[in-house]
């Protein structure tokens, strides 16, 4: 298909040609029709994936684009979830207010790690964010307001007799925000914000010498990333209806890192693919153990505990064999078919 551009506006467009636009149309149509054909269980898996996509996009903007490592992403999801819990559960604030406030609260608290990141690099930043994650977890366990282990109830979304409560309704709500999050991430990536992030990742001294303020864009990266996490946390809180600190421990942060490493660092598509796969793995394990129950009855009890280990293995294997993640594989296939049947 011919692909000629006659203006810079066309050249910078998000959806470059009719081919891409038609596929997008088909995808959207499928997303609207498909849920009616799926069971509640299958929908619940997709809903979990949708929320993970939002969180993973945020983390990828921070680690993949800006190169600032964070082992505390789960903590920002927790901040979003508990802000929602406190606002909606205790004060009765509606969803439409709780969502942006949750994101903003997480973004503001990200300054606690964002500002030190101007001094800390690499391993030290990783340790700092790790500590931040533990502190948040500790606070949630011991603060009277958050009620520790008992957890907090989160009310339903809705007003005037209409409530979002079924899996199907949540599906549309979550997918709407996941799509919006993707669009915003795409836009950030193709404007000066994304370029500044990548410049800081690739050569921070040169970035500074080109007039890019390190402090401004590093803090912005942390804030945007935390905002995404806060929004994901808010949706998660409403979706789960009940939140406990155990939902947001270190394993959540590791799962998010596994998503972006497996999917592809520094790419939007990678965040989505990684989120889908990593969220899907536990369900795959359950499916497998169910299928094998007849032959190995003890397997199911064992393998659920191995979830974290499997995430770790996924990270190591991806880094070893496909550092660009699933996106790298996708790109290679694309190039292969572009020139097929010729080798070059």
């Amino acid at each position: 298909m011919a692909n000629f551009k006659i203006s810079y506006r066309e050249d910078t467009a998000l959806f470059q040609n009719l081919w891409v636009k038609s596929w997008l149309g088909i995808f959207i149509a499928a997303m609207i029709v498909l849920p009616f054909l799926l069971s509640r269980y299958q929908l619940s898996i997709l809903n979990g994936m949708g929320i993970a996509v939002i969180g993973a996009l945020g983390l990828n903007l921070l680690i993949g684009y800006t190169g600032q490592i964070s082992l505390g992403h789960g903590a920002f999801v927790a901040i979003g979830a508990y802000t929602t819990g406190l606002l909606a559960g205790t004060l009765g604030v509606p969803f439409i207010v709780a969502l942006p406030v949750s994101g903003t609260t997480a973004a503001l608290l990200s300054l606690i790690v964002g500002v030190p990141s101007l001094r800390l690099k690499g391993l030290y930043l990783a340790l700092g964010t790790l500590a931040f994650g533990f502190i948040i977890e500790y606070v949630l366990f011991h603060w009277d307001l958050t009620r520790g282990d008992t957890g907090m109830a989160v009310p339903k979304i809705g007003a005037g007799g209409f409530f979002i409560e079924t899996e199907l309704q949540f599906f549309y709500l979550i997918m709407f925000f996941a799509a919006l999050a993707t669009l915003v991430a795409k836009n950030l990536a193709r404007t000066k914000i994304g370029r500044s992030f990548v410049a800081i990742r690739d050569r921070d001294i040169a970035a500074e010498a080109m007039g890019i303020s390190l402090s401004k864009y590093k803090i912005m990266a942390f804030a945007v990333s935390a905002f995404y996490a806060g929004v994901a946390g808010c949706l998660l809180a409403y979706y789960q209806k009940w939140i406990v600190p155990g939902n947001f421990d270190i394993s959540l942060s590791i799962a998010y890192i596994a998503m972006i490493v497996l999917g592809g660092m520094g790419t939007i598509l990678g965040s989505i693919l990684g989120a889908i796969l990593i969220t899907g793995i536990p369900y795959g394990i359950v499916y497998l153990t169910d299928a094998l129950r007849g032959t190995y009855p003890n397997l199911s009890g064992l393998i659920v505990d191995l979830k974290l280990g499997i995430f770790g293995l996924v990270i190591v294997l991806t880094l070893l064999f496909e550092p660009q993640g699933l996106v790298g594989i996708y790109r290679r296939i694309k190039v292969y078919w572009k020139t097929w049947p010729f080798k070059y």
């Binding site: 836009n187 000066k192 410049a199 990742r201 690739d202 040169a206 007039g211 890019i212 912005m220």
Partner: peptide
Amino acid sequence: LFKGMTVLDNLMSARVHLMKYGLLGAALY
């Protein structure tokens, strides 16, 4: 140079300070 970017994006990143739009403007393009 910024290795992860194209030539075009490398040059565009030198003009960050000449663009005035903010985070929200960029998010919604």
